[in-house]
């Protein structure tokens, strides 16, 4: 099954809900421009969770990336999309 950008974003929303303990007011308003730390208030543990959950969900491995390289949801979506190609 190929995974398109919309599907990746939707899966990331699920992970974000879980990473943030479901505390985000409106996950539906999350889009590619949403900033992970500034808008969603993700802590370093949340970011660790996001990266590990993403590895598990998409079957990819994050190589040579630091947590601070991902500023927005779109940055993560793009990275996943590249790894899945």
């Amino acid at each position: 099954m190929s995974v398109n950008k919309t599907e990746i974003t939707e899966k990331l929303k699920e992970i974000l809900l879980s990473a943030g303990d479901g505390s985000f007011e409106s996950i539906d308003s999350v889009n590619e421009q949403t900033r992970l730390q500034t808008d969603l208030g993700l802590t370093s543990v949340n970011m660790l969770y996001l990266i590990i959950a993403t590895e598990e969900e998409f079957g990819i491995r994050f190589d040579n990336v630091g947590m601070n390289e991902f500023k927005t949801v779109g940055d993560v979506v793009e990275y996943i999309g590249e790894r899945l190609q």
Binding site: E10, L17, S26, I27
Partner: peptide, 16 residues
């Protein structure tokens, strides 16, 4: 529980 609407081969999370 999380609800997903499935359409055209993609699913859309309904924000719980």
């Amino acid at each position: 529980v999380k609800y997903f609407w499935v359409e055209d081969g993609s699913s859309f999370l309904m924000g719980g």
